[in-house]
Nucleic acid binder design. Structure first.
Lengths: 308, 308
DNA sequence: AATGGCATGTCTACAGCGTACACATCGGGT
DNA sequence: ACCCGATGTGTACGCTGTAGACATGCCATT
């Protein structure tokens, strides 16, 4: 050990300064991405910011794809939380701060929960709140949309978020496959809005010009649009003067659609009195009790026998 | 001209072989992207395929961003077309083949069109067909999702497609701003589904393993999922056995939502019998005929006068 | 106490990307 | 005859992710 500086540092320096660690890497990467976008997170820049060389990162992370996966789940911390009335809300960042509130502290799936006595009530408000929460998360971490990957193994935070959506959606009484489909649909609405919002934010930062101003200067484009009758009629009628927020509109329409679907399908949630298979009522008339003529006949014979 | 080869070529070679041209570049780029994804379209590879050097491309295109914009609009050719019963359907490819069917050959916005006598009828079927057409386009060009850009100037094909969606949606009788919002919403559903489909396709090609198989091997993930009660209950109940197609489900729910919105809002489309301004019915009760008490009183006085 | 092995960090190098810049060639108008 | 713009070529720069060889320090075993 010919270097006394190094000795001094090791002997007297703050002990925690030294090690690179997975947590520090991921946390710093998330900060970098929050500030400058996922594109700004290169291994070199990240290493620089951490005060190490590029290749040091590879001692803790096998490659960039995995790093992004870790960032992704870290950023999703808290989305799955039940919004309860407790004041502590901002427990977000960091893969180390185990913000995942253990799904087992569950919001009353089995025994009746105290706060909301009726099981199916207010799924719509809760699902809307969940969606808005997701949009908030995406607004805090605009790069999330760029980090999407259909083959990514979901982490605890991602699963917790989806579990929460399923728990809410399940209260609608829709059949299981549709619960998943509906929750996924709303999740997709959130992801789509987040993507548009993030892309616009990036464009604005990249060009230095705001949305309104940029599109206001496209006169050479608008000159061509007279040829499209519906488009120009709608424009003349003020369709673009005060457009509704596209996320709100999409979310409300989607929830309307799910609501309509519930009206159509919940009556299918009845079991055949004989064989237990689901019974689909007709579009009108007296509700059916049996799934088929065979079962009805079987029930009839059974009744005859026991009554006799 | 010391080079006799060059002379021979110029004198005897096929005349059209020579020039690089914007059309050829864009067409070839689209082919390349169709076959190997947008990521495979680098200026070097594209130039190689065309038999020129990289920098030759820059004599025709200012940069890659513009090239992608040209590819994008070229790939959208045909989406805006009215699906009339004519057998010629596959007029898709190429920025040169002016496939845009001139929006002025319009589908009966003004005078009553012959084929569909009732104006509002079947907006739902038409909009669904438009959405499916869009998904088809995206399936033929899976890279379209990667080429999205909120600040891109739309080309004629993109505008034609949106015009078609607006034309259909306008038949619902929704107010102008909502026509745009609803059409955009459906467009977003298409884009979202296309994105998921493309990402999955790329993952499949990249890993060489199909969706089912890949997720079937994630046992080490599923081992963790017991902790999530709703998720595992739904799984046990078979929610994942025969999942509905996510695009179909999302599209139908979205159209349901628009339908519900029409029921809620179309009654607002009535004009005050006195001043002509729009009259909003209350949430219940007898429909209003006047926009204000003042107008009602004016109408009453007018009636008294004319009857007397 | 010495030693071997492993974890950690560093350095150099490579293939790929978009594109700026200097240069060669050719056709057409002054 | 001359020049000039359009077109195509070749080289080079800075950026990316990461493979591979090398140095160092700590821990467990001998």
């Amino acid at each position: 050990m010919a270097n006394p500086e190094r000795s001094t540092e090791l002997l007297w320096g703050s002990r925690t300064r030294g090690g690179l660690s997975l947590d520090r890497i991921v946390r710093t990467a998330v900060e970098l991405a929050d500030a400058e976008g996922l594109g700004a997170v290169s291994m070199r820049r990240l290493a620089d910011r951490l005060g190490f060389t590029t290749m040091a990162l590879y001692r803790h992370v096998p490659g960039k794809a995995v790093l992004v996966a870790l960032m992704y789940d870290a950023a999703l911390a808290g989305w799955g939380a039940v919004p309860g009335p407790d004041p502590e809300t901002s427990t977000d960042t960091g893969p180390g701060s185990d913000a995942t509130p253990g799904p087992d502290a569950n919001p009353g799936s089995g025994a009746g929960s105290v706060t909301s006595p009726d099981p199916g009530a207010d799924w719509r408000a809760d699902l809307a709140a969940w969606a808005r929460g997701g949009l908030d998360v995406h607004r805090r971490h605009p790069w999330l949309a760029d980090a999407e990957d259909p083959r990514r193994v979901p982490g605890p935070n991602a699963v917790a978020a989806f579990e929460r959506a399923l728990e809410i959606t399940a209260r609608t009484g829709l059949p299981p496959a549709e619960v998943v489909a509906a929750a996924s649909l709303v999740s997709g609405v959130v992801a789509g809005a987040a993507q548009r919002s993030a892309a616009e934010a990036r464009a604005e930062r990249g060009s230095g010009v705001g949305f309104e101003e940029w599109w206001g200067r496209r006169d050479s484009l608008y000159a061509h649009l007279d040829r499209y009758p519906t488009l120009s009629r709608l424009y003349r009628e003020g369709a673009y003067d005060a457009p509704p927020d596209s996320f709100d509109y999409g979310l409300e329409r989607t929830l309307d659609g799910i609501e309509a679907r519930i009206r159509d399908v919940v009556r299918y949630e009845k079991a055949c009195e004989v064989c237990g298979r689901p019974v689909a009522d007709g579009p009108a008339g007296r509700p059916r009790a049996y799934c088929s003529a065979a079962c009805r006949q079987r029930a009839y014979r059974h009744r005859r026998r026991t009554e006799a």
